[in-house]
Design a protein around this nucleic acid. Structure first.
Length: 791
DNA sequence: CGGATCGAC
DNA sequence: CTATGTCGATCCG
């Protein structure tokens, strides 16, 4: 459905011609290709849409030109080198080829149209299409003879085929039919993967094994639906998909599970047939003389130099006839959006109100799935079909129509202002929400008392009469993000916002609640839970290196001091050496050993990341082990010596929330290091400075048994960080969500206490309010009474 | 992170 | 008159 591929699909036309379906002598009407193109061109030419299409085409041509220039600069030397590398990779892929699965791709023929024809016999033997004047979703085969295709606007279809019936879509109905079919599919593979209402992949390997033992009569079992369907049977999804396209309509095609059969099938296959290769990629590759899969394979070295890693890997997979053999369950949703096309709209007022409407629709959809997100994106398309998207990410999740609109409105305003005094002439507007928190984030959020208190403050202000309405935008601060900033800069700016937010809350609260005792309690709690930078007056740090006390200084200042302390002794030098040695030991063996147990995806992540930041392998081991936990690639990068140690000192508090977690990653580091670098390959660069003194940790004062300087330095690093964590935890205990039972207990107590206070607080004011109200009314009636009866 | 673009259905 | 709506992925800045 909606497939733009069908638009330029010559093969299908050939097929129709072969079948004689286009033959007027047989009493069938229809148009030949020339006529179809002519009509389409007439309808298209001069339209704004067409102008924009030309513009886009130009851009693609420009891209191709750039690519050709790049190609011209490639030396034969480079090409040979690339050839070796690619072939090495191809060899690996070849070894991992798996022909043991039987994948079936099911694709229902002209699904929507078929359902409509089934339900309304009048439509049979008529050319029909499902959709609107604006756009068609699909058409039946009769209509296709006139060139009426999916992804074609209805009005053009009408010109091609004036007797065409356009049926508005009934998605509920299609869904119901789809469900029926899927029930049947589940018999073959309970874990089948549905791509849409009319498409699915089945892995019937297991089914076939079981079926071996079935009695003969039971094996004769056909899927019987009112619709025809295509399916393809192959050893992987990529091939199965192509197969199902092969014998349309209502056909089947199988590729036998041996390498030769696969390669034979692939040989002359146009790359465009493969899922993932679209119009643009086709054109780009065509410029390089690549049309079929064989040519794709022949040009592999060149492609590896001209395209991104992910792209040429994809190409190589295709040209080897490789694809996924397991049907991955679809993961969590990444975004949700609403968009609408309309006749030209230029009034800002209308645009705002439409935006608001879209926001509330989105909010409704979000509520159905209970989703909240941090990034709001608006999409604007003007009457010239030029599309713009504008996004803003805020620090805490949003989900209601008001919250989303508050952000979307700003984005829209910026765009309107930018074009002032000209109005935005829009034909489409959309709103999208993304950056949904993952499971980890949710847990964090739950445990975070700061977040909890902010919610509390919000609840307080929401209770109303006596509180000034808190500025809604306080939770909608855009993040100051820029790639030039380091991870810690970003963290800092995030903190800045949240501090300002807290101050704002306090300001509002103090104004209106000065007299309340319970508020004082709350405020105190809040202060205690404030991050240490905020209330640094009460801070006393003990330097883990010189053991001196430092009162009345900020955390940053303290960290600077620690750095200074560390700068003196040779420890620092050794630390540098340590990293250096790791960074320079780049032998393939070693690298592979470090992350041998991780998936390809993680491996790629690691490799690309390493390319960017030049961090050492140990850091990477840590990265993978702590995947899903706070230290992401950037933060781990910050751990390496590339960044200042100020950051290193601050880092643990930011990201390693639990000691347990921290130790886990520590032990992993040791494990990886002893496991690979020590045994497999000696350190290429050992520290040249020989330490004469015994290896006594300057932090914990314990003599270390190891004579290995690297391990010792690691110990010092860990000790140092641990020390700072402990110090910080002492100061802002409740600030640190922790897994230990003790802290959880404390947390629960605080939690209960807070809610009790909050409850009685609200109750008190409610009673007070109604008490006063009651007396007002009472006095009023008394007054009336006296008026009437006494005078 | 933000924006554009591609691709699929 | 009249050229969609939703989603994920990727690349680049």
């Amino acid at each position: 459905m909606h497939s733009t591929k069908e638009k330029n699909d010559n093969n299908k036309d050939d097929l129709l011609l072969r079948m004689g379906l286009n033959d007027n002598k047989a009493g069938m009407e229809g148009l030949d290709k020339e006529k179809i193109n002519k009509i389409i061109m007439e309808a298209t030419r001069g339209s704004k849409f067409y102008v924009n299409e030309l513009k886009k085409e130009k851009q693609v041509n420009q891209r191709i030109e750039n690519m050709m220039q790049q190609k011209a600069q490639i030396t034969s030397q480079q090409l040979r080198k690339a050839q070796l590398q690619v072939d090495r990779f191809a060899m690996e892929l070849e070894q991992s080829r798996d022909l043991n699965n039987t994948i079936v791709h099911i694709d229902m023929d002209a699904f929507y149209a078929a359902v409509e024809m089934r339900d309304n016999p009048e439509l049979k033997d008529k050319p029909i299409a499902v959709g609107s004047m604006m756009m068609l979703s699909t058409s039946n085969y009769y209509a296709r003879r006139f060139g009426v295709r999916a992804a074609m606007p209805g009005f053009i279809a009408k010109r091609l085929c004036p007797q065409l019936t356009i049926v508005p879509p009934n998605f509920d109905k299609y869904q119901a039919v789809s469900r029926e079919v899927k029930e049947i599919l589940a018999d073959y593979d309970p874990n089948f993967m549905a791509m849409s209402l009319d498409e699915a992949y089945l892995n019937i390997t297991k089914h076939l094994q079981e079926r071996q033992n079935w009695p003969e009569d039971k094996r004769k079992y056909f899927i019987k639906t009112g619709n025809s369907l295509e399916n393809g049977i192959a050893p992987n999804t990529m091939l199965a998909k192509v197969c199902s396209d092969k014998n349309k309509p209502n056909g089947q095609y199988q590729i036998l599970p041996d390498r030769e059969a696969v390669m034979d099938f692939i040989k002359d296959l146009p790359i465009r047939k493969v899922s993932g290769i679209g119009k643009v990629t086709e054109k780009m590759l065509k410029a390089l003389g690549v049309i079929t899969c064989t040519e794709l394979y022949q040009q592999r070295a060149l492609l590896s130099l001209l395209f991104s890693e992910t792209s040429w890997h994809h190409f190589l997979h295709i040209s080897l006839g490789l694809g996924s053999t397991l049907l991955a369950r679809d993961g969590d949703r990444k975004s949700m959006s609403v968009e609408r096309t309309f006749s030209e709209m230029s009034k800002a007022e209308e645009q705002y109100s439409l935006c608001q409407e879209l926001c509330s629709e989105l909010a409704q959809d979000l509520q159905k799935e209970g989703l909240k997100g941090r990034t709001v994106t608006i999409k604007l398309k003007n009457v010239n079909f030029e599309v713009k998207t504008r996004a803003s990410t805020v620090s805490s999740v949003v989900s209601t129509a008001e919250e989303i609109f508050a952000i979307a409105k700003d984005l829209l305003r910026t765009e309107i202002d930018a074009d002032f005094p000209h109005p935005l002439r829009l034909r489409l507007m959309g709103v999208r929400l993304s950056s949904f928190p993952n499971e980890e984030d949710k847990k964090q959020q739950q445990r975070s008392i700061i977040g909890f208190l902010q919610a509390g403050n919000q609840a307080l202000s929401a209770t109303g009469h006596m509180l000034e309405k808190t500025d809604k935008d306080q939770f909608l601060k855009p993040l100051e993000m820029s790639q030039k900033k380091s991870f810690f800069d970003k963290k800092r700016s995030e903190r800045k916002w949240s501090q300002q937010d807290t101050f704002k809350c306090e300001a509002v609260d103090t104004q209106s609640l000065q007299t309340s005792d319970s508020f004082q309690v709350l405020k105190k709690m809040n202060e205690n839970l404030e991050t240490s930078e905020n209330s640094n007056k009460s801070q006393i740090f003990i330097c883990p290196v010189c053991f001196r006390e430092h009162g009345s200084i900020s955390l940053e200042a303290f960290n600077k001091h620690v750095d200074a302390c560390l700068n003196g002794p040779s420890i620092n030098e050794d630390r540098k050496m340590f990293s250096c040695s790791h960074a320079s030991s780049t032998e393939v063996n070693r690298k592979e050993n470090v992350h041998h147990s991780f998936s390809l995806r993680e491996k790629q992540d690691y490799e690309t990341h390493q390319k960017h930041s030049g961090i050492n392998s140990v850091d990477c081991a840590e990265l993978v082990e702590t995947k899903g936990n706070p230290p992401k690639a950037e933060s781990v990068g910050a751990l390496s010596d590339k960044h200042s140690k100020e950051e290193c000192a601050v880092f643990p508090r930011e990201s390693f929330n639990t000691e347990q977690h921290y130790q886990n990653s520590f032990s992993t580091v040791l494990l990886e290091d002893t496991g690979s670098s020590q045994q497999e390959s000696p350190q290429p660069y050992l520290p040249e400075v020989i330490i004469t003194q015994a290896l006594v940790c300057p932090i914990c004062n314990l003599e270390q048994k190891t004579s290995d300087l690297t391990l010792f330095n690691m110990h010092v690093d860990i000790c140092l960080n641990k020390g700072i964590i402990q110090e910080l935890r002492k100061d802002s205990l409740a600030n640190q969500p922790t897994k230990s039972t003790k802290s959880t207990g404390e947390f629960v107590v605080i939690f209960i206490l807070f809610y009790f206070i909050l409850f009685y607080f609200i109750l008190f004011y409610f009673i007070l309010f109604y008490f006063i109200l009651f007396h007002f009314i009472l006095f009023y009636f008394l007054f009336l009474f006296f008026n009437i009866y006494l005078f």
